[in-house]
């Protein structure tokens, strides 16, 4: 294929990747930014979102693919959010959000979710029909119209998030908590409740991203590992806890991942990019775009 169309395809694929990645990473970034908690079970919340989408779709059958999809779009974040709320309330809170303890605990939660899904949902990868399907024919290759919808949906959600964070009282409270927990408490902000909601919201973003992507991929009980690692990378490059940085990083990484692997051996490309990320964290701990937050 000629270079032009090649690049166009790579960019489209990169945007889809970036869309999903930015939503997933945004969740991880919020919990890290506000609570200083690394949630290792984030990928499993993502996986649960996909499994719930499959579940809704398979109950309603292919005839009601669109309704099933809409229901999943609403239900998956809600269920996952409640689950996250529960694990925050009963586990993280009693650990007092100590970084190392929470990492270990969320590894435990990861196993629990994964194994429960294996036992109930089974080991097979299961497809979910897209709510609509049409193929856009470029002169050189074809492309799924649903993928463009995913990009659009992510932009809408991200804009909404930006509005909430930048222009509303909720955003103000979150930023205050992020900047100085004790000071915020002194000003009467209910820290505990903020933490609980932030943790739930973080998980909900992951679930939402999964519902968007599952018609393109499939639901599988081990699908959480890759988004977790990628989200980590994005959050680091973006500057730990910086929302704007995370989104920029998601786009950058999503796009470059697609383009780099066209020129190099893809496995080598993955090695190099992982190594680079580690070095960024070592030599520029505030991230590539990060401003020092605290």
């Amino acid at each position: 294929m000629d270079f032009g169309p090649f690049l166009l395809l790579a960019s489209l694929e990169g945007l889809v990747q970036a869309a999903v990645l930015s939503l997933t990473a945004l969740g991880l970034c919020l919990t890290f930014g506000v609570m200083r908690v690394v949630n290792v079970s984030h990928g499993e919340f993502y996986m649960l979102g996909a499994v719930i989408a499959w579940w809704a779709a398979s109950i309603l059958g292919p005839k009601y693919a669109l309704s099933g999809y809409l229901i999943a779009l609403f239900l998956a974040p809600c269920i996952v959010g409640l689950l996250a709320l529960a694990s925050e309330r009963f586990v993280l809170r009693s650990l007092n959000y100590e970084p190392e303890a929470t990492i270990v605990a969320t590894i435990g939660i990861l196993y629990i979710i994964q194994q429960t899904v294996l036992m109930s949902f089974g080991p097979d990868a299961k497809p979910v029909n897209p709510p609509f399907y049409f193929r856009i024919d470029f002169p050189w290759f074809g492309y799924s119209g649903y993928k463009l919808f995913v990009i659009g949906a992510a932009i809408v959600v991200l804009s909404g998030t930006w509005y909430v964070l930048a222009r509303t009282r909720v955003g103000l409270i979150m930023r205050a908590t992020q900047l100085d927990r004790d000071m915020a408490q002194a000003f009467g902000i209910p820290i505990k409740r903020v933490y609980a909601y932030v943790f739930a919201a973080g998980a909900m973003y992951a679930a939402l991203a999964a519902v968007l992507i599952v018609p393109i991929r499939q639901a599988h009980y081990l699908m959480g590992a890759d988004p977790l690692l990628m989200s980590f990378i994005v959050v680091i490059i973006g500057g730990l806890g910086s929302v704007r940085g995370a989104i920029v990083a998601a786009v950058l990484i999503g796009m470059s991942d697609g383009i780099i692997s066209m020129f190099f051996s893809p496995t080598l490309a993955k090695m190099v990019s992982t190594l680079l990320v580690a070095l960024v964290l070592v030599f520029r701990p505030q991230g590539l775009f990060g401003v020092k937050t605290s």
Partner: peptide, 19 residues
């Protein structure tokens, strides 16, 4: 076959009650 589930529960339990 749910031994990972047990490992998970032990991890959470340990870190909460027997750190």
């Amino acid at each position: 076959s749910a031994y990972l589930l047990i490992a998970g529960i032990i991890l959470v339990f340990l870190v909460m009650y027997f750190p």
